[in-house]
Nucleic acid binder design. Structure first.
Lengths: 183, 183
DNA sequence: CCCGAATGAGACATTGCTGTCTCATTCGGG
DNA sequence: CCCGAATGAGACAGCAATGTCTCATTCGGG
């Protein structure tokens, strides 16, 4: 017994990433437990989503920590980060969409903190002359999130190879599609 | 009388863009009509979404046409396109999310045709030496869609200025965040 | 081995949305 | 002006998911 809460959350994340409207019953079945048991541990769908949110925040923060965004060039740091965040990309994409539904409501302070860290990273890169300054840190942050979500979806849909995920995201975000003269 | 179908679709698009789970009743109220009338014109929620899908496909195609993707440099064409597609960005973002829910089901052939046009544009740019060739046309296409959706959302959330929308998307997609040496 | 705790299966009421229907009202063309 | 068509408001049943509860079963620590 002693239900593995972590494993339940992981399977729920995997399912909801694919189909965000999945039923509590489907979530339970996907975790290999009964719906009643699922309800005993997460008082409702809201509680489940909130638990997933905390998991996502924790993983996102862990990826930022693991990437050591202050060390080396900004480009190296960004590469490390995208590699570190890749396993959580699907979950994060789901949570972003889910958050968009709560229009105006109180947004989890955890996200603000993470957003601030990412935006500060881009600002630092601008101050060091590594990033262009005509694109705001806020936009670069949003664009990074968007590309991670898009990449996760494209991989899952089979439109791009999974092993290219970090390369494609970082190359596009940093270098863009334009072929530069020195190439 | 003689309900303005176009105007109903537009207000539905505006509402569903903000909150994709809006009720038929809310859609009707947003359009200033009764729920019964809404049902008389769109036999159900599915029919409404399908009508919105056709509208989105038509607008997307119109934006491609208006941008004349074959004329001038690829960069100029892309700029024209993003400017032309901006008014439809919210609707397209909603439709992409909605389509993701139909896992595996028959996807509207209209999208395939549009995807092919966009991918062909990037491929042409690669052949002309304007775009780098280590990023696949399929990925560039997905990334463009993702950035358009992200941009639309960031504007609506007030995180970036609306008038910067085309500039930010095109600059990031083409040039990337890296500050190049010649700058 | 045994007993308590946790689980799974299912019944049940509730809720919110949907789709259909009716009927009084309103609009607008002829 | 008048009549038919369209609309709005609301009633209604159906349905799917939720959340709660019960009860038999199973697991595992002592």
């Amino acid at each position: 017994m002693t239900l593995d809460r972590e494993q339940v959350l992981r399977s729920a994340a995997a399912l909801l990433t694919r189909r965000s409207t999945a039923t509590m019953d489907e979530v339970a079945k996907a975790a290999g437990i009964g719906r009643a048991t699922l309800h005993r541990h997460f008082s409702g769908r809201d509680a489940l989503v909130r638990a997933l949110e905390e998991l996502g925040i924790q993983e996102f923060g862990a990826a930022l920590d693991a990437a050591a965004m202050d060390e080396g060039t900004s480009e190296e740091a960004l590469r490390r980060f995208v590699v570190a965040v890749e396993p959580s990309a699907g979950l994060l994409s789901f949570l972003v969409t889910e958050n968009q539904l709560f229009e105006g409501d109180d947004q989890n302070a955890g996200w603000d903190r993470l957003d601030a860290r990412v935006a500060a990273f881009f600002r630092r890169g601008q101050e060091r002359g590594e990033f262009r300054i005509d694109l705001t840190p806020a936009w670069l942050t949003e664009a990074l999130y968007g590309l991670i979500g898009t990449g996760a979806w494209a991989v899952q849909a089979g439109r791009v190879a999974a092993r290219d995920f970090p390369y494609m995201i970082v190359e596009l975000l940093l270098g863009g599609a334009r072929r530069s003269v020195e190439q």
